[in-house]
Design a protein around this nucleic acid. Structure first.
Lengths: 219, 219
DNA sequence: GTCTATAGACGGATAGAC
DNA sequence: GTCTATCCGTCTATAGAC
């Protein structure tokens, strides 16, 4: 996988002083190997030896750079989560975007994030169950979700929809956008699809989901 | 990894006649401790010593009854999965039940199964990703799903819905029924609900989901 | 910075007493 | 059937050469 080492250009060795050109550092090789393995198998099923050999470096280097396996895990986890939480928060909190437009952007965000890495979502849920404290909202996220929630409540009030709790709308949105990525291997196998067809289906959902959400919100 | 072979339990069928009277046998104590811990944390995060102490028995007994940790795991997994797969298959395959009635029964089935044990669904998905071979359908399931799928296709043909793949209907159904159980801890915390309120919400969905599915299928 | 070699702890499994 | 004691491989972490 990621062991792409760009060959330094032999004709101008002199200019290689600052490293922009060439090798991925050992630290980065370890990080990306760890990200891959931890995300696929979790903390305990992955041994430091696995990471070292996947990264093509020596076992001792892992401790040299990251002190311990746990610290490396924490680092990977934090990187996996923060970028993701940030983009969702920004989207939810946008006061000037229409609800259904927001829903479409959310679908697309997930498609980009999870379509290329179906294991990540499962990893996130495992983390959420095992280390819920990592998901305690910062002020930013809390406020952002309020914005989205208010948009939903306003719409329901306007449409006079009273018989269901607004949380159901939120659950349905989350379910329809995220769950298919968890079912990825399952659906692929059952429907006898290859990766490309599967991705095409998931991409269709980016525009279909807002339509379904409209239907659910307009009885 | 090691070949986990699902072995139907033949070992203690005969011995069940005794014991109604009093104490739970050591074997059962181990099984229920293992079920709890494996379901919560997975195979590798659980140590045999954890199981022994949770069960209140000695470490050696675990091997005495189950030969090895992995065999115990396989046993627990098999018990978790087979009952569940069976009831879904029976429901899907019922030729005489209307599609939306079937959807309502499915919602209810999941409510009963996962409402009382939110960790189980996550466990199932982890297993699905790590040991997909355990989910290869028997003939029964394969045929059952065909029955359901045909009902969906027939309805879509009748309603002249052409712009979406029938698989989306299946994905939406699965998403809306199952995903909220995965989000359980998340939703509870965000919406500041207690367990009872949360369960009430999930129970509402049993009747709401068929209605939403109707809306999605009737543009 | 990167390697080899190894210390030291942990965890699964078993021998053997009762 | 149930226990204690222990074996032995595996794993993380580190010492020390280069």
């Amino acid at each position: 996988m990621t062991n792409i080492v760009l060959c330094p250009n032999l004709s101008n060795m002199a200019s290689v002083k600052k490293e922009q050109v060439s090798k991925v550092s050992a630290e980065e090789k370890i990080l990306s190997a760890a990200r891959k393995l931890f995300t696929e198998r979790g903390l305990h099923a992955v041994k430091t030896r696995d990471i070292a050999s996947e990264a093509g470096i020596n076992l001792a280097l892992l401790n040299y750079y990251f002190r311990s396996k746990e610290m490396l895990y924490a680092r990977v986890m934090s990187e996996n989560l923060t970028g993701f939480k940030r983009s969702v928060s920004d989207l939810f909190g946008n006061e000037n975007m229409d609800l259904f437009e927001k829903i479409e952007h959310l679908s697309e965000l997930y498609f980009l994030e999870f379509g290329s890495n179906p294991e990540l979502l499962l990893f996130i849920f495992n983390t959420m169950h095992q280390n819920p404290e990592l998901f305690l909202d910062g002020d930013g996220m809390q406020q952002s979700r309020m914005v989205l929630f208010k948009q939903i409540e306003d719409l329901m009030k306007k449409k006079k929809i009273k018989k269901m709790h607004p949380a159901h709308v939120m659950m349905n949105l989350m379910s329809m956008t995220m769950f298919p990525y968890l079912m990825f291997p399952f659906i692929k196998q059952r429907a006898k699809l290859d990766d490309a067809q599967m991705l095409a289906l998931l991409k269709d959902r980016v525009t279909l989901i807002p339509e379904w959400m409209k239907l659910i919100l307009k009885p």
